[in-house]
Computed example of a mutant assay.
Amino acid sequence: MYTHILLHTLLKLAHFLHNVYIAIRYACIVGYRKCTGLLCARTELDLLLRMRAKTKKIPRHLVIVLGLCDESVLDCVRIIGWCIALNIPYISFFDRNGFLKKNEANLKEEFAKKRPDLIEHIIWNSHTKPPSQNGITGSKSKINVLLLSDTDNKGKIVTLVQSLTRAVSLGKLDPEDITDQLISEKLNMKGLPNPDLALIYGYTCSTHGLLPLHTRTTEFLTLPLYISISVEDFIYLLERYSKFVQRYGK
């Protein structure tokens, strides 16, 4: 009995210390913004352009891992707008339960309401390469926005195994032709480059089902969970990413 009480007390203490750590961490983020002058800018665009001007390394493909958070359509709208301003050509939103896929029409409608000036800059769920990366001032600048779920990851492996087995049994495919290259091509993330940066929007630091095949060189960072994400948080994480040095196993 005493052991149970002791363990319960230690668990509460650990939870309290974790909350203190989170509070201190976010206080440091606010202090960092003040020191770098981020809070002096008047608009989100000012903040983004200022960061872009002084940052040499911007992800080419950003993936937002939504974890268990479903009520995030408005945050997605804002993040897409920020990515357009920063010339990030590919952005994917991954939630394993397929919430955004089921609500794709709602997402497009909200984006049209909030950012009608940027509608022509988006290619929805396309495998094609954006034709230009000239920033939001370029009339032909495009960004690929993909909505992904578990069917594009683990579910895709199951489907691939079934199709290969069927092809072999029907004599349409020689087992010797099933190579690592073939499997990699079939499991390619809809023709997109692998993500450079993944921002986890959830309570747990987890890939939430993203395949290791797609995230071999991906940096993972965690978004703070507020009612809505702020552009300052987004910029802070991109600045952290820009300082990472990827050694690719060396």
Rank of each mutant, 00 (worst) to 15 (best):
S139N: 14
I122F: 06
I80Y: 02
L197A: 05
E110A: 02
G171Y: 13
S141D: 14
T218D: 04
P212M: 02
K142A: 10
L146S: 15
D95S: 11
L237K: 06
P116I: 09
R33C: 15
H4M: 09
V145G: 05
T217C: 08
Y26V: 06
V73N: 05
I157A: 06
I58Q: 10
K114H: 09
C40L: 15
K108S: 05
L192C: 14
Y32F: 07
T128M: 10
N194I: 04
K108H: 05
Y236K: 02
H208M: 05
N103C: 00
E104Q: 14
G81C: 02
K172W: 13
Q133I: 11
R96N: 08
I58W: 15
T215Q: 03
L199H: 01
E176V: 09
E239Q: 09
L173Q: 12
K57N: 12
L199S: 07
L6P: 01
T204R: 06
L49W: 04
L68E: 15
L11N: 09
H18Y: 14
N19P: 01
L148G: 03
S242H: 06
L146T: 13
I183F: 06
P175K: 13
F111H: 02
Y226M: 02
N97M: 05
L11M: 06
F244M: 08
A85I: 01
K54R: 14
K140S: 12
L173W: 12
T222I: 04
N19C: 10
L187H: 05
L182N: 09
N153H: 15
V168P: 04
Q181D: 12
K156S: 13
N194C: 12
D95A: 06
N153M: 15
K114F: 07
V231H: 11
P116L: 08
H61K: 09
G135K: 09
P175S: 03
C35S: 06
V168Q: 11
P193D: 02
R50S: 06
S92Y: 03
C76E: 11
N188K: 07
S184P: 00
L6N: 10
A23R: 15
S228W: 01
I227R: 12
I183M: 13
Y236M: 01
L160H: 03
V145W: 09
V73K: 07
Y2K: 05
K56M: 10
L49A: 06
Y236S: 04
M51Y: 13
T137P: 04
V20A: 09
H15S: 14
P175H: 07
I227Y: 12
Y241A: 00
Q181M: 07
M189Y: 04
L160P: 07
L68G: 10
K142R: 15
C28V: 14
P89M: 00
G138P: 03
V145L: 07
G98R: 10
E71M: 06
A85F: 02
H214R: 04
H4I: 15
T218P: 04
L39T: 09
S92V: 08
Y2Q: 13
I235A: 15
H15R: 13
N97F: 01
Q246M: 14
I143T: 08
V30D: 12
H8F: 13
A105D: 08
S149W: 11
E185A: 14
D180S: 12
V20D: 05
R115K: 12
K172V: 01
C83L: 04
E120P: 02
L199T: 03
L187G: 11
L164D: 07
E219M: 11
